[in-house]
Protein backbone atom coordinates (compact mmCIF):
# COMPACT_ATOMS: atom_id res chain seq x y z
CA UNK A 1 0.00 0.00 0.00
CA UNK A 2 2.91 2.31 0.75
CA UNK A 3 4.19 1.85 -2.80
CA UNK A 4 1.02 3.36 -4.27
CA UNK A 5 1.26 6.29 -1.85
CA UNK A 6 4.79 6.98 -3.08
CA UNK A 7 3.64 6.84 -6.71
CA UNK A 8 0.78 9.17 -5.84
CA UNK A 9 3.19 11.70 -4.35
CA UNK A 10 5.56 11.49 -7.33
CA UNK A 11 2.67 11.98 -9.75
CA UNK A 12 1.44 14.98 -7.74
CA UNK A 13 4.91 16.55 -7.91
CA UNK A 14 5.06 15.89 -11.68
CA UNK A 15 1.62 17.52 -12.02
CA UNK A 16 2.90 20.60 -10.20
CA UNK A 17 5.99 20.63 -12.47
CA UNK A 18 3.69 20.60 -15.50
CA UNK A 19 1.68 23.45 -14.02
CA UNK A 20 4.93 25.34 -13.66
CA UNK A 21 5.59 24.66 -17.34
CA UNK A 22 2.07 25.85 -18.22
CA UNK A 23 2.49 29.04 -16.16
CA UNK A 24 5.99 29.82 -17.43
CA UNK A 25 5.49 28.65 -21.02
CA UNK A 26 6.25 31.64 -23.35
CA UNK A 27 3.93 30.56 -26.18
CA UNK A 28 0.23 29.77 -25.68
CA UNK A 29 0.81 26.34 -27.22
CA UNK A 30 3.22 25.51 -24.39
CA UNK A 31 0.33 26.24 -22.04
CA UNK A 32 -2.05 23.97 -23.90
CA UNK A 33 0.60 21.23 -23.93
CA UNK A 34 0.91 21.68 -20.16
CA UNK A 35 -2.86 21.51 -19.86
CA UNK A 36 -3.00 18.31 -21.94
CA UNK A 37 -0.19 16.50 -20.12
CA UNK A 38 -1.53 17.69 -16.77
CA UNK A 39 -4.94 16.13 -17.42
CA UNK A 40 -3.19 12.92 -18.55
CA UNK A 41 -1.31 12.90 -15.21
CA UNK A 42 -4.57 13.47 -13.36
CA UNK A 43 -6.19 10.50 -15.14
CA UNK A 44 -3.29 8.40 -13.88
CA UNK A 45 -3.69 9.76 -10.33
CA UNK A 46 -7.39 8.81 -10.37
CA UNK A 47 -6.58 5.33 -11.72
CA UNK A 48 -4.16 4.74 -8.86
CA UNK A 49 -6.66 6.10 -6.29
CA UNK A 50 -9.30 3.78 -7.70
CA UNK A 51 -6.85 0.92 -7.26
CA UNK A 52 -5.98 1.90 -3.66
CA UNK A 53 -9.62 2.37 -2.55
CA UNK A 54 -10.86 -0.62 -4.61
CA UNK A 55 -13.81 1.44 -5.90
CA UNK A 56 -14.60 0.74 -9.57
CA UNK A 57 -16.83 3.81 -10.09
CA UNK A 58 -13.74 6.02 -9.80
CA UNK A 59 -12.64 4.55 -13.11
CA UNK A 60 -15.77 5.95 -14.78
CA UNK A 61 -14.64 9.32 -13.47
CA UNK A 62 -11.15 8.75 -14.90
CA UNK A 63 -12.52 7.89 -18.33
CA UNK A 64 -14.66 11.04 -18.40
CA UNK A 65 -11.63 13.11 -17.36
CA UNK A 66 -9.63 11.79 -20.30
CA UNK A 67 -12.58 12.35 -22.69
CA UNK A 68 -12.94 15.96 -21.60
CA UNK A 69 -9.22 16.57 -21.60
CA UNK A 70 -9.26 15.54 -25.26
CA UNK A 71 -12.29 17.77 -26.05
CA UNK A 72 -10.84 20.70 -24.07
CA UNK A 73 -7.41 20.47 -25.68
CA UNK A 74 -8.82 20.28 -29.22
CA UNK A 75 -11.12 23.26 -28.60
CA UNK A 76 -8.43 25.42 -26.98
CA UNK A 77 -5.93 24.52 -29.70
CA UNK A 78 -8.48 25.49 -32.34
CA UNK A 79 -9.26 28.86 -30.79
CA UNK A 80 -5.74 29.93 -29.87
CA UNK A 81 -4.69 30.03 -33.52
CA UNK A 82 -3.75 33.49 -34.72
CA UNK A 83 -4.46 34.72 -38.18
CA UNK A 84 -2.18 37.81 -38.47
Amino acid sequence: MIFEQVILWVLAILAVALTLRAVLGPTPWDRILGFNLLSAKIVMIIAICAFILKKSYLLDVALIYSLFSFVGTVIIARFVEKRD
Binding site: L33, A40, R78
Partner: peptide, 20 residues
Protein backbone atom coordinates in the same frame (compact mmCIF):
# COMPACT_ATOMS: atom_id res chain seq x y z
CA UNK B 1 -9.39 3.72 -20.27
CA UNK B 2 -6.06 2.69 -21.83
CA UNK B 3 -7.64 2.07 -25.25
CA UNK B 4 -9.43 5.43 -25.13
CA UNK B 5 -6.32 7.27 -23.97
CA UNK B 6 -4.10 5.67 -26.64
CA UNK B 7 -6.62 6.74 -29.27
CA UNK B 8 -7.15 10.32 -28.15
CA UNK B 9 -3.85 11.52 -26.65
CA UNK B 10 -1.90 11.56 -29.94
CA UNK B 11 -4.87 13.29 -31.51
CA UNK B 12 -4.81 16.05 -28.93
CA UNK B 13 -1.05 16.55 -29.25
CA UNK B 14 -1.43 16.56 -33.04
CA UNK B 15 -4.03 19.31 -32.92
CA UNK B 16 -1.79 21.42 -30.62
CA UNK B 17 1.18 21.11 -32.96
CA UNK B 18 -1.06 21.79 -35.94
CA UNK B 19 -2.47 24.93 -34.37
CA UNK B 20 1.09 26.13 -33.63
Amino acid sequence: IVVFFVLTNPLATHSIARSA
